[in-house]
Write a protein that binds this DNA or RNA. Structure first.
Lengths: 143, 143
DNA sequence: CATTACCTTTACGTTAACGTAAAGGTAATG
DNA sequence: CATTACCTTTACGTTAACGTAAAGGTAATG
């Protein structure tokens, strides 16, 4: 029943800062910056930072938020919605209100994306018909 | 057959800067800033700027791009895809390549949004089941 | 004709999100 | 033990996207 490993509190798998930086395609400075701003709090092994799988997930969520134009502050707000710690009814209602607002914004963004996607479709169609009509003898370029 | 109005080149309908600012919920400074950056080029009536429907559409497209996290530079690039001026085959192929790249990014963003939306669904469900289980006698709050 | 409501330009200020450089610690490796 | 490859902190720099203030023009309105 006792834990078979001698490491006491360190999680099974950890990551160094450069491992995560490489995995996510960002610089180590970026990851340290997120810590400065309180978005993550890695463990320490001496001076070195050690990132748990949970830290890794947080970084992943931050970068996901950033891809759709969220500020870092908005990313934290979003991530904090997942966390419990909201115990009483008023807090739960408030959280539901926040969730609804955020969902509306996400739905608007998806509308924007869909509009832009169909715009791209039109452009590509127009290009390709023009190419086949006006330049019928060009060989189709390889991928 | 002659045009019945005395205005020569001014489009039928124009907008002032504050009309557009109010419509789109931005400041006039924002609109002037877009002009500084070469995103729009309104007409002038003396000193005053006069915006055509085409200018208005450009602003709309800029703000749409911004909502999904595009920089202003990316917004111009996107809008420029709509414009013709690409005549030869090489330019058309290049445009199609750009369209494909942009589409990939938009699809990734839509994936991100869908992931976040289902996350929100889970949070809301958890909140609501907790509310109905642990606080069964609270009156449902009005909208 | 003074006020009001718009418009203009110029120019400096601000915030977010890092980049970059300097100066140094540590652990393995030839 | 010198080199290499990581890691650290501190601190100043940079870019985008406006905000804000100052100083002034113009057209209608009471």
């Amino acid at each position: 029943m006792t834990s078979p490993d001698t490491q006491t509190q360190i999680p099974r798998r950890t990551y160094t800062i450069s491992e995560l930086a490489k995995e996510f395609g960002v610089t180590t400075r970026t990851i340290r910056f997120y810590e400065e701003k309180g978005l993550i709090s890695p463990l320490r092994e001496g001076q070195k930072r050690l990132y748990t799988p949970a830290d890794r997930v947080r970084i992943k969520l931050i970068l996901r938020g950033k891809r759709i134009g969220m500020t870092l502050r908005e990313c934290v707000e979003f991530i904090d919605m997942y966390q419990p710690g909201h115990n009483n009814a008023e807090q739960l209602h408030s959280l539901v209100r926040d969730v609804k607002k955020r969902r509306e914004r996400l739905l608007q963004q998806r509308k924007d994306i869909d509009a832009m996607l169909s715009g791209l479709d039109e452009v590509q169609n127009l290009c390709e018909t023009t190419l086949t009509n006006d330049f019928p003898d060009q060989p189709p370029e390889p991928i």
